[in-house]
Design a protein around this nucleic acid. Structure first.
Lengths: 338, 338
DNA sequence: CCTGAAATCCGAAACGTTTTGGAAAACGAT
DNA sequence: ATCGTTTTCCAAAACGTTTCGGATTTCAGG
């Protein structure tokens, strides 16, 4: 593998000059620069970024820390959409992405900062970890620039991008209210997700503003899982057969809910309206097609990457909140009279 | 950031000893090893892999080169499933994955070996490039261990994993034949994919073995795209209204075909049977649910990673061929009499 | 106490870059 | 020819590791 030294020797100059020539410094004459460039090309030279990173003390690498890259998460390609967004932005820069995955127990032996420091990543994008994850406290304590996705924690070195979860949930519930529903349940995720808290808040706000009583028993946790949501929904609707609508904190859970309803002989949307959250791919393909709150996952990744690179170039951490959108399909309908 | 030197100073030993202690060599006494370990922990030391890689001449990094990480490819999460498989295996090793994306024009300025050598990756997994991609010739010329996905090229440094495409396609067509179909069309991908060639061959074999005439006009290319397939299918069925079944080289194209059929007022499977290939997530959710040839994408990634790591440990390149499976759903039915 | 071997340690070079501070060369003006 | 600039170049240190070859210490056996 040819190095800068080989070029220096071949060109009859010092390695300093080669380095400076290749990096476009002005203190090397056009003639020798040309010569050096030619030799470099001829010798099929490519710089060793490892060596460069070592001395420059930056690796031009960002770490992408995702937890949703599991076999079971394939249905809900949330993770992949944000990854695609990240990748899309990064591809336009001279950074590369290194993939950390936090789901393996192997990796879990290492702390967050160990992971990052070993590979000397310049910054990190973090997605999909729970609010009680020990990594989270490390993120703020660490001095590595980081942008979080859907986790509202901020410092001068960490920013985040999220969507207007409260307002999004509110819109969903208001949609149900406008259709005349009053007996509305909610299938939430779990207590260790910020978005769950926020969407619950949106639920409360919408209900309270409309002066509709909230039945606490009708708010259950489905752990963002299709199966869990199905089980919980089955129990719920079996016990309370007067519920006419349910707001689910994710589309995947909405699918589970619909399965449960089917089993119970309840029709969607005639007997009960179901609204989801996310607008995953499946939402428009299932039958009935799912009414939902769409969030632009691709853009979340894109913005996150953009913010991180900004931070690496000296700008400060921000918070970006993207808009969501109500997408009305077939799973919601006016409440039945009587 | 604490280095090996800091530890040496604090422990009153040389850097050599620290290095050897930390790496578990036998020529350091238990007492000093203990001391060094303690100090390392106390100083919150993590090794600088950049420096290590530089001197060891290997980076413990593998490059993942995918082309399907685009916004439009999200529907067909083929790419992501294999990525998940790769990730799953790699997580159990001490390697990390660095993500190269080939779709950006920016990256395209660099050659394959430039990409790999700059980051000094130890090996590469390559997925989703076309047969005429200049990268492909580089792969075989390069001395970097590489495993390809669905590209049957082999040398002592490059292996591949694929599925039994010929047999899979044959099974699909035989399924149609067994249902009594004789007038069978094929929606293929494009000429620059190995799998297209192989699936076409499977189509031929099945038809010829059954002594069913092949109409060359009924074999069209949909470029693996839903839209393109829809357009081509529309033309095809408009012109030849006696076709009773079609084999599609991908599920995504099958979806496009079904859209076209719907537009033409043809029912699936009553009027025409449709069979796909891949078994993507959507296949079981669309209506009618798609009969298809399932391939285990996750395992493809997993096997690829496994083979690559094997190769990096001195074993030789192999070829792994995974089995496919016919999954009968609702989009195929016996041919109508008359 | 001596000897030889085994156990433990260390200095220095190497990996491929960048950068600092200054030296040498070229050049223009007097 | 001399002087002061400007241009062009370079030697050496530095980044944080690993490893080679050898040096020092420890210790058992006599």
């Amino acid at each position: 593998m040819t190095t800068i030294k080989d070029i220096a020797k071949a060109a009859g100059v010092s390695v300093t000059t080669v380095s400076r020539a290749l990096n476009g410094y002005s203190d090397v004459s056009e003639k020798t620069r040309k010569k050096i460039m030619d030799i470099a090309k001829q010798l099929n030279y490519s710089p060793n970024t490892l060596a460069r990173s070592l001395v420059m003390n930056k690796s031009k690498t960002i770490g992408l820390l995702v937890s949703g890259m599991t076999r079971s998460a394939l249905k809900d390609n949330f993770t992949f959409e944000v990854m695609t967004g990240v990748n899309d932005y990064i591809a336009k820069t001279d950074y590369d992405v290194i993939l950390f995955n936090t789901n393996s127990t192997k990796q879990r032996e290492k702390t967050y900062s160990q992971l990052c420091r070993e590979r000397r990543v310049d910054g990190v994008i973090l997605q999909g970890i729970k609010t009680d994850d020990p990594y989270l406290t490390e993120v703020v304590e660490s001095d590595i620039p980081c942008v979080l996705i859907d986790i509202p924690i901020q410092s001068d070195r960490v920013g985040y991008v999220t969507t207007d979860n409260v307002y999004g949930a509110k819109k969903a519930v208001q949609h149900l209210l406008e259709l005349g529903h009053r007996r509305i349940a909610m299938m939430n995720g779990h207590d260790y997700a910020f978005v769950s808290k926020q969407r619950l808040q949106g639920f409360y706000e919408a209900m309270e503003e409309a002066n509709v009583p909230i039945e606490k028993e009708w708010i259950v946790n489905g752990d963002f899982s299709e199966e869990m949501a199905e089980a919980r929904a089955y129990e719920l609707f079996e016990k309370h057969n007067n519920i006419t609508a349910i707001f689910c904190a994710s589309d995947l859970m909405a699918l589970g809910v619909m399965k449960a309803l089917k089993q119970l002989g309840l029709r969607v949307p005639e007997d009960v309206s179901v609204i989801g959250y996310d607008d995953i791919l499946l939402a428009s393909y299932v039958s009935p097609a799912l009414t939902t709150i769409a969030q632009n996952k691709f853009q979340m990744g894109y913005e996150a990457a953009s913010m991180l690179i900004d931070m690496l170039e000296g700008n400060e951490a921000k918070v970006v909140t993207l808009r969501t959108q109500l997408v009305v399909r077939e799973s919601t309908a006016p409440v039945k009279k009587g």
